[in-house]
Structures are given as C-alpha cells and as structure tokens.
Design a protein around this nucleic acid. Structure first.
Lengths: 206, 206
DNA sequence: TCTATTCAATACGTGAGCGTATGGTAACCC
DNA sequence: GGGTTACCATACGCTCACGTATTGAATAGA
C-alpha cells in the first residue's frame, strides 16, 4: 500500500511528493513533518537531513506542482490540433484527475501565504493565457477571447469546487453527458451537440 | 476600530461573529480561543463561560452563517419580480460582499470536517434549488433548468475563487460591465446586452 | 580494513493551542 | 448589607508540532 517498501533510502523528491499527497487529502496543515515521517516509515531525523525546514519542503512541493499544472498539462492539451479540442481536453481534465483538483483547491485556500499565493497566481495566469490563445485560434478577437477564457476557467474552478463540496448536486451518470454537451455548447463557439437531442431547449422561445 | 468598546459585557453571538470574521480573514485555523479573546479584549475565561468548547463555537458560527447565506440571501433576491432579475441579483451579490465570498471559500476548504461539510452541502443545495426555480420561472423545463442552475452556480463559485486567488485576471474597471453583460447573455435566457455595444462580438462568425 | 559520507533514530527545548480549576468583581435581589 | 448570579482573570497541565543536537548505522572509497 505504501510506497516506502520499494526503495530503501528516501530522496528529497519523495518527501515533496508525500507533501503533495498530504495536501491533496488534508490541506496544507497536513504537511506536518512528523506525520509525513510516520507515513514514509521514518522519523524526523530523515526529513531534516533533506530539508532545512518545513518551508523548504513547501517550496519544493510548490515547484513540482507548478510544473505539473502548467507545462505538463498545457503540453498535453497542445497535442490536440484545433482550439476547440484543446478547450474540451482541459475540461475533461477537470473530471479526470481528482488529485489535481484537490491540490488546486488546497493551495488556493491558503493563497494568502505569499509563498503559495505567488505560485497560484502564476498557475492561473498561464492556464488562462493558454485558454485565450485557444479562443483566438477559433477566430475570436482578443477582447472576447479573454472574456470567454475567464468564463470558461471560472466554470472549471466552480465545477471543481462543487464536485468536492456537494458532489450530489452536479449532474452525473446518464445526465452527465448531456450536461457536458450543454457546457460545450455555451462555452465553445461553433459547437453543436452531437445527438441534437436538446430539441426544445437552447432556444428559450418556448 | 474594534467593536469591543461599545458594550461592556459580551454575548455568545459576539463570539460567534468574531469567529466568522476570523474565518473570513484567516480560515478555520484562525478560530483560536485565545486569539479571539485578545481580539475581543478579554481572556479565555470569558469564552469558556459562554461556550463549553471550541466545537460549540463552531456550531454556533455555522448556524449563523447558514441562515445568512440561505434564508436571508434568498429572501432578498426573492424581492425581485421575475426570475431573470433574481438570477442577476445573485450574481451581483458575488461582487458585492467580499466577506461572504471569503466565508464560503473558507468553510468549503474544510468541508471534510463533517460538522462543516453538512452545512456547506445544505447551503449549496438551497442556493441551487433556488436557481432552478428561477430558471423554471423563465419557462425552462426541469432538466434544462437544473443544468443551467448548476452551470450558473459554478460560474459564481469559480468567479469567487478567481477573484480571490488572482484578482488581476478577472475583468475589472471599464471591462467589467462588458464582461458581466457577456455572462448574463450566456447564462440568462432571453437576455440581450442593453447598450448593444458588443457590435462584432457575441456572434463568432467574425 | 579504515574512514568519510550518507541517511536516519533519539532526545531535548520551545511555543501555541485546548481545556480545567479556581479565584475575583461587579450588579442585582431581598 | 449579605448573598446569589453573571461574567471574566489567572494559573496550571496536556498535546502536538517545529527545530536542534547528538548519536548510530550502512555504504562507498582508499
């Protein structure tokens, strides 16, 4: 179950990953040296050899997280050919990795700490910039591309939040695809629901 | 500056309000008995007379918050005549009270605590239900009304989050009204931008 | 084999926060 | 005015977490 049975000696990255896991599950407070040590099957003695203090661990964890959530995610999405598919891919990511969402929310919750806040701002910045590019690639001029990007990203964040705080409220199961189609229809210009089963909806003329 | 100069003796509600203030500013961890006491100009002795323990204070604070964020907010929005105006009002509320937003995010961040989580779920439930009613009042049938309600509420939450974590990214100043009009146009069926100044936008045909 | 380096265990000191116990002081009641 | 009640202060013990200091063991290199 635990990973500490594989290698016999720990690295700084092992600690950083453990910190990220802890944050995802229990928030920033869960990053407690002794608790992580127990989790890794060692004691504090190990930790203070790899890091000078708790803050250094946080920096390392934040660094890893930032890379994963910008370069990596964007690189993966950039593999799609057109802007619409990229936007769609980012949205699917929201549903996909639960850990990623938990991590963002946990970090964002303590964005008041300057160390964390700076990284959170950069992550948001890069994500939205990427969104803007995608919308521009779809033919929108700068101003509207930015509006749509911000709105889309807000939907992303809000869905993340709602799925965590009240999962029973967000459509799932058979209604899930309908809901996703509706979102795409609203947020992706030129998108039309495949099945066209939203007969009387989407036009409010009643 | 502080309010403790007005009355000479504290009440349980004073403590609950102080707790809510602390949560809004510093998260749940900021609810520390001794710190609140200093803030109120007294010592722990006072606290443990009004409450049996910290948990009891949290319960009281949550109770107050739940009422404020459901009954009160909804009652105020219900004063509007039609559904569109009500939805619009709820969105304005997001921009209005900063404290309310901070409070929601702070509570939601610790929704894992059963005590908090139950309340957060109820608050979300009632808000979304109210949204659904409004969309139904606009002529949408149940299924689509729910989809739109969830999406709108997600936008609400996401904007809240984004305004806190990266305020420079969300349109403000002169662009703010344009952005709000865009949001309304997307989320409120039958809405058309008043000034019609979105000449070449809002139709992606370029 | 001897030794330096790497990694970890143990023991200790400090501070913050919770909760308890007990004492103090006004106001009010009779 | 003596006593009860409401409200608060002070002092104490406990736990948890951070960080330091010191010791221990394994491994690699010479």
């Amino acid at each position: 179950m635990h990973a500490h049975t594989s290698r016999k000696t720990l690295t700084a990255d092992d600690w950083a990953d453990a910190a990220l896991d802890a944050i995802a599950e229990g928030g920033l407070d869960a990053v407690a040296v002794e608790r992580l040590a127990r989790r890794l099957g060692v004691t504090k003695g190990s930790f203070y050899w790899h890091f000078s203090n708790r803050k250094a661990l946080l920096k390392a964890a934040l660094k890893r997280w930032e890379r994963q959530q910008t370069d990596d995610v964007i690189a993966r999405a950039a593999m799609e050919t057109d802007g619409a598919a990229r936007i769609d891919r980012l949205f699917r990511g929201a549903d996909g990795s639960k850990r990623a969402g938990q991590l963002y929310l946990a970090f964002a919750a303590v964005a008041k700490e300057p160390l964390v806040g700076a990284v959170v701002r950069r992550v948001n910045q890069r994500r939205i910039d990427f969104m803007v590019e995608n919308y521009q690639a779809l033919g929108l001029e700068a101003r509207e591309a930015r509006q749509r990007a911000v709105l889309s990203y807000s939907v992303y964040l809000g869905t993340l939040q709602l799925r965590r705080d009240a999962p029973e409220l967000v459509p799932s199961g058979p209604e899930f695809h309908d809901y996703m189609d509706y979102i795409r229809e609203v947020l992706i210009p030129g998108f039309e629901a495949s099945g066209e089963r939203l007969a009387e909806s989407s036009r409010h003329s009643r």
